[in-house]
């Protein structure tokens, strides 16, 4: 199962109306290369699933898309990533507004040790999106509604966010992200710490969010990828092996590695 040098991605890595375009992206941690020459489009208002065995670089690639890797000193990125045809690694680009446009939801729910209200209001406050308390309340309510959490927490907005259950916490984190009105939402295995019921709830939510946002989701669950995504990208040891419409990937994988992975020969 060796890696083919300079592998050309199988399938359709590019699409018609791309929101994000990655071209020849490589990622290095110090001297070690974690991602090799990845080119991929993420279309507007689509859900793209990034799958692959653990350590394949799918999370690393996702974190490149809003420059979360900047917080790691030894991390270096080559190639280019374009958001609406603008290179997000260009020197003049400020990561702060970039991250406001490309939000992120993490593997483990990480609500701030604040109230539920303040958790959601955090983004709008720091970005100065509102001028009045009632506007803020409106945004908080709207975001919580969209995240499907409003009915559960509307009576206890002053309770600490850390007191919620795991699934609720993750939905709170999603609400927190959509409160700043991003264009793209990146989700890094958002359900890996949750039970099946909470997972189903989040998957529903992702489907609803697709109307307004572009979503890239990293998942280790093939069923989840099949349920929520339109396109699926398969990563293997830092290389993008195959990108195809999701039903195609799971019914007729083009590449032998993809087939091996989805049939469970490794993972």
């Amino acid at each position: 199962m060796s890696i083919i040098e300079n592998h050309q991605t199988d399938g359709e890595p590019f699409c018609d109306s791309p929101k994000l375009k990655a071209r020849g992206v490589g990622v290095f941690y110090g001297d070690k290369q974690a991602i090799f020459d990845v080119s991929l489009d993420i279309g507007a208002n689509e859900v793209i699933a990034l799958i692959g065995p653990s350590g394949c670089g799918k999370s690393t690639f996702l974190r490149c898309l809003n420059r979360m890797n900047d917080t790691i000193d030894i991390c270096r990125i080559t190639g280019e990533i374009l958001l609406d045809d603008e290179d997000i690694y260009a020197p003049k680009i400020d990561v702060v507004p970039l991250r406001a446009r490309v939000g992120m939801v993490f593997q483990k729910p990480n609500p701030f040790p604040k109230t539920i209200f303040d958790n959601v209001a955090y983004g709008p406050r720091i970005h100065g999106l509102v001028n009045h308390r009632h506007e803020l309340e409106e945004i908080v309510e709207q975001s919580l509604r969209r995240a499907g959490l409003w009915s559960e927490v509307k009576d206890r907005l002053d309770a600490p966010g850390t007191g919620l259950s795991g699934g609720q916490q993750q939905r709170l984190c999603i609400a927190r992200t959509i409160a700043v009105d991003p264009e793209v939402i990146l989700m890094d295995e958002p359900c890996s710490a949750l039970d099946p019921i909470a997972t189903a709830r989040i998957e529903e939510l992702i489907d609803e969010l697709r109307d307004n946002y572009t979503i890239a989701i990293v998942t280790h669950s093939m069923q989840q990828a099949a349920r929520v995504s339109q396109r699926t990208a398969y990563f293997h040891l830092g290389q993008l092996i195959e990108v195809n419409p999701t039903d195609l990937v799971f019914t007729k994988p083009q590449h032998a590695l993809t087939e091996a992975y989805i049939t469970g020969r490794f993972g």
Partner: peptide, 10 residues
């Protein structure tokens, strides 16, 4: 927690 905040653009 820091990542969560940075991810929102803080």
């Amino acid at each position: 927690l820091r990542d969560g905040s940075y991810g929102l653009g803080a």
